[in-house]
Nucleic acid binder design. Structure first.
Lengths: 135, 135
DNA sequence: CGGAATCCTATAGGATACTG
DNA sequence: CAGTATCCTATAGGATTCCG
């Protein structure tokens, strides 16, 4: 509670670690969906779009392991399993939304930068990019 | 400028895209280091710690491509190349720092959740976890 | 329904050697 | 100094099949 300042080197590793956990292909999308409320497995599967069964399982396990999501099994037939954000998960969702704001706000600038870069690079390695200089 | 609200499905993909670019093994660390000011190639290499030459190159190229970093070549001998955050890069750094704050603030809770999870899982698949029940 | 197990491919990333 | 090129391994992730 009395951290006067944050030690940068240690800091970076944790950020990187969190980011590589959350920065995988699916975690953010799952967390955002769970932000709407508890969801069942196949409910998530349908709404996340493109995720494989296997990856949904792995993603949820990872989130559960980090204490971001709870998994509740109802031993009925057929079985029912609910996933829900924990308090920790909710707080993460909030800061992820911040990053989301940044992403949408700067999306165009990034995409244009990419186009510029790719165009310049293509011009660089072009087979015969300079016309009117016949061999 | 007049986005009344943000379209969630589109939103997610961009966030995920940004996160998987920035959420790789090195980008954040490089951006944080460049937050201190312009740096030369080998300067970054020394300070990032553990990064290979190849990955530093690739990371910097990616950041440059997205318009987050500029690359300035001084045609001297020996050559000198400076990397520096752009305005876009600085604004990203700010929001990444927010996430960093979250990470350090919740680090302990996450690590403990992991230990709990791993312990429970180990108990699950333990060879003979129940003592005092001799066969 | 909610997975687990298996197989397969693509990509990330490390190590090393060479170059302008 | 600041890379590029090549080779190699490990991991992510998709597709498919099987199970309680």
């Amino acid at each position: 509670m009395s951290l006067s300042y944050i030690h940068v080197p240690t800091d970076c590793r944790i950020v990187t670690e969190i980011l590589s956990q959350i920065g995988d292909k699916w975690s953010v999308q799952v967390v955002v969906q769970l932000g709407e409320g508890p969801r069942r497995f196949n409910e998530l599967r349908r709404v996340v779009d493109g995720i494989s069964q296997r990856m949904l399982t792995l993603t949820l396990r990872g989130l559960e392991r980090d204490g971001l999501v709870t998994r509740t099994v109802y031993p009925t037939i057929p079985p029912r399993v609910d996933y829900e954000l924990t308090g920790l998960g909710c707080s993460l969702l909030k800061t992820v939304r911040e990053l989301g704001m940044w992403a949408v706000a700067n999306r165009d600038e990034i995409l244009e930068a990419r186009r510029r870069y790719d165009r310049a690079e293509a011009a660089d390695s072009a087979p015969v990019p300079k016309p009117y200089r016949a061999a």
